[in-house]
């Protein structure tokens, strides 16, 4: 059973934006996506392996075909937010995290 940890209030993450959270000594990028009027939350590692910098939370959220993706702000590779796979290079993938909204609180689990 994963243990859920409180991270922040939902309104600390703006709609269609990401924020970086410190979770179990790791940097986790949490994204708040509004799709067809629904609130969706995703969480992947914040570290971009191409630029070797902790920047993914500052990328632009979008969709490619039916995937919801984040574009790295440095060299613009896309990562699938549901499974962490890099769209341009499937040999690269990022760790994903469980994330949920409990009341108005965003929570992460490993």
């Amino acid at each position: 059973m994963s243990k859920w940890v409180d991270i922040c209030n939902l309104d600390e993450i703006l709609p269609n934006m990401g924020r970086c959270a410190l979770f179990e000594d790791q940097q986790v990028a949490i994204f708040r996506v509004i799709k067809a009027g629904k609130e969706l939350l995703y969480a992947i590692n914040n570290y971009c392996p191409f630029s070797e910098a902790n920047v993914l939370s500052r990328g632009i959220i979008g969709s490619l075909a039916d995937k919801v993706v984040i574009a790295s702000p440095i060299y613009k590779q896309h990562f699938d937010l549901t499974n962490g796979l890099c769209v341009e290079d499937e040999s690269v993938s990022l760790k994903t995290y469980e994330v949920r909204l409990e009341g108005n609180t965003v929570q992460l689990a490993g």
Binding site: P15, M17, I60, I61, I74
Partner: peptide, 22 residues
């Protein structure tokens, strides 16, 4: 201005030029 903020590249959002180390 909301919701224009979500359209901006990180450079425009942070109003600075992101360098290779973030």
């Amino acid at each position: 201005k909301k919701p224009l903020h979500a359209l901006q590249d990180t450079n425009d959002y942070f109003m600075g030029n992101m360098q290779k180390d973030g």
